[in-house]
């Protein structure tokens, strides 16, 4: 290791002879938490915005007299006269009463796509949802620009994020180790981590920003190529939604791994930067 992130100079030996390294730089930690806050509010305000027209389409426009829909969440009255929440995915209907389409207590049913506990504000308010969404969209994009520039300059991107050939070759082994709940803690990102972080940081985040801009009629005039790139405003809206789901999926796995790999150590490393290595790495990477 000849990089500053794991500079042997920074390695300190603790009283109990456990080895800690400085794992995350300040800029990595700050951008991580800024994103965490911004993405949380972007998600909840985004679901508020989705509720204003809870249907997704492919193409430039929304089919009202023709069908180009791929997803919708609608309340629908069944044969017994009861209103059910029906979620339609690519033409298949699912009864999601209680959460999607129809939610809330029996006496005060709310007919809304996403329930009150998943939106900001909790009540139906598209105007405020948009205010929150666009404020944190600015935060998110600004933090992304800072992270990207810093990570190019300090080598974080090349060293820790971009998977190399070695990472691709190591992938089957890392995968089987993870399935067996065997986690290695040598301070470096393993090939699975690199791959998932590269996907999120270099594909999902830019996709979110660009599909978001594609929905702006002003930006359509400024950068009409956005519409060509994504195949129309409504397709961009659908991609925005799908990438949201992928990011939520990443978040679930991310939290799972933090708990599985040792929540105290992992949280400390993202707050203070210090990360404790497995004993067997004492003399290994910390040459």
């Amino acid at each position: 290791m000849n990089t500053t992130e794991y500079d042997p100079q920074t390695i300190t030996t603790r009283a109990q002879a456990r080895l800690t390294i400085r794992r995350h730089r300040l800029v990595t930690r700050l951008t991580h938490w800024a994103w965490a806050v911004a993405l949380f509010l972007l998600l909840l305000s985004g679901l508020q915005i989705f509720n204003a027209h809870p249907a997704l389409y492919i193409g430039q426009q929304s089919g009202f007299a023709f069908d180009n829909g791929v997803f919708s969440i609608q309340p629908s009255r069944d044969r017994n006269g009861e209103v059910r929440g029906i979620t339609t995915v690519l033409g298949r209907n699912f009864d999601t009463t209680g959460v999607l389409g129809v939610s809330g207590a029996k006496q005060v049913r709310a007919y809304r796509a996403f329930p009150a506990w998943l939106t900001v504000p909790s009540y139906q308010d598209l105007a405020t949802g948009r205010v929150v969404h666009f404020f944190f969209a600015w935060v998110f994009a600004t933090v992304y620009a800072i992270w990207f520039m810093a990570s190019v300059i300090n080598g974080h991107l090349r060293r820790d994020i971009l998977p190399g050939w070695g990472d691709i070759r190591a992938l089957p082994h890392t995968l089987t180790e993870h399935i067996r709940f065997h986690f290695d803690h040598d301070g470096r990102y393993n090939s699975l981590q690199k791959l998932s972080y590269a996907l999120v940081l270099l594909l999902f985040f830019p996709l979110m920003i660009l599909t978001g801009l594609t929905m702006s009629p002003g930006m359509n005039a400024a950068w009409p190529w956005l519409l060509d790139l994504f195949g129309g405003r409504q397709t961009a809206r659908t991609i925005h939604f799908v990438v949201m789901l992928l990011l939520v999926g990443f978040f679930v796995v991310h939290l799972f791994m933090v708990f599985a790999a040792g929540p105290i150590n992992e949280m400390r490393s993202m707050i203070t930067g210090r990360y404790r290595l497995d004993d067997r790495h004492k003399g290994g990477n910390a040459r």
Partner: peptide, 12 residues
Amino acid sequence: TRHDCVEGWSCV
């Protein structure tokens, strides 16, 4: 042109 409603739908 494409009419974009604040709700999210579009119509040409």
